[in-house]
Simulated scan of single mutants.
Amino acid sequence: MESLGAPGAGLAIALENLFPPLPSEVILPLSGFTASRGEMDLLDVLVCTTLGSVIGALALYWVGALLGRERTLAIAAKLPLVKTSDIEKTEAWFQRHGRKTVFFGRMIPIFRSLISIPAGVERMPVLTFTLLTTAGSLIWNTIFVMAGYWMGEQWELVESYVGIGTNVVIGLVVLAIVVFVGVRLTERRKGRHANRP
């Protein structure tokens, strides 16, 4: 952190969008701690990490835009247990709640990265996406950078507490997948019984 400075922290956050295993929950508090020791400027850290968030999010947005609706539907049609209607329902939901999803999604572990792709698929206006991503990222980054700044040598505690929240999110995602698979398998079984003479 000392050798790369604020631009290095921004680069790490940009990469975190593309490779979620790189945890912003560690990078941001450590940046704040380094700034508290006078080895980085606090404002530079906030600007660079937010810029990194936006650059990483835009990269995934364009992946979604290049993928497009037709390719997404074609991929979904080949996935087991997934129906085209699932994608259509997701599209309808995103059209109603897309702005809130992009803004608040920047503050939810895992979804922080993933939310950019459906925004691109749905071709949310780039300016709107960029503004919402900037606002959400600035709030998230500021909270964690300042936590590291104020906590000093104990900055690692931030990651510990957020790790609990991240595990809860992962648990809910796994539960949702299990329920989804269970429902689809039950529907398939009922369909087979109904088709028997």
Score class of each variant (00 low, 15 high):
W140F: 12
T186L: 08
N17M: 14
V145H: 07
S3D: 07
G98H: 03
N17Q: 13
F33I: 09
P21E: 12
L42W: 05
G165F: 13
G64L: 03
I164D: 06
V102Q: 04
F33E: 09
V169L: 12
L15I: 13
L132W: 03
L18G: 07
G165L: 13
N167F: 12
L138C: 10
V169Q: 03
E187H: 04
A12P: 01
L11R: 02
R106P: 00
M1R: 02
V162E: 08
F104I: 14
G32N: 09
G5T: 05
F129G: 06
A147Y: 07
D44V: 01
L18T: 09
L175D: 02
M40Q: 10
A194G: 00
P197L: 10
S137L: 11
Y61P: 02
R37M: 13
A59N: 01
V168L: 15
A92K: 14
K83N: 11
I143V: 15
R196T: 13
W155K: 11
E70L: 03
E122K: 02
T142C: 05
T134N: 04
V126T: 14
G56M: 06
R69W: 14
L11I: 15
A176P: 01
F94L: 04
D41E: 09
G182P: 09
M151V: 06
L132C: 08
Q95E: 14
S31K: 04
R192L: 15
L58H: 01
R189W: 08
V174I: 15
L175G: 07
P197Q: 08
F104M: 12
P197F: 00
L67K: 05
L175I: 10
E25D: 15
T49K: 03
L28H: 10
D41K: 07
P118S: 12
E91M: 07
S3L: 08
L73P: 03
L66N: 10
E187S: 06
F129V: 11
T101S: 14
I143W: 03
M151T: 13
L11E: 04
L60A: 13
L185G: 07
E156P: 00
L15P: 01
L132Y: 03
W62V: 08
A35P: 02
P7V: 12
L43V: 15
M107K: 05
E91C: 03
Y61A: 06
G152F: 06
I139R: 01
R69E: 15
G152H: 10
R37C: 02
T101V: 15
A12Y: 02
T166P: 00
T142A: 15
L4Q: 03
P23A: 13
Q154S: 13
A194E: 14
A14V: 04
W150D: 02
V126A: 11
G136F: 07
R188Q: 15
Y149F: 14
K100Y: 04
S160Y: 10
F103D: 05
A12T: 04
E187W: 01
R123M: 12
A12H: 01
I87Q: 03
V174S: 09
P109K: 10
L131M: 14
L22Y: 02
L138P: 01
T72A: 13
I87S: 04
A76P: 03
G105I: 12
H193C: 00
G105Q: 09
P109W: 02
A6W: 06
V26Q: 06
V145E: 06
I115H: 04
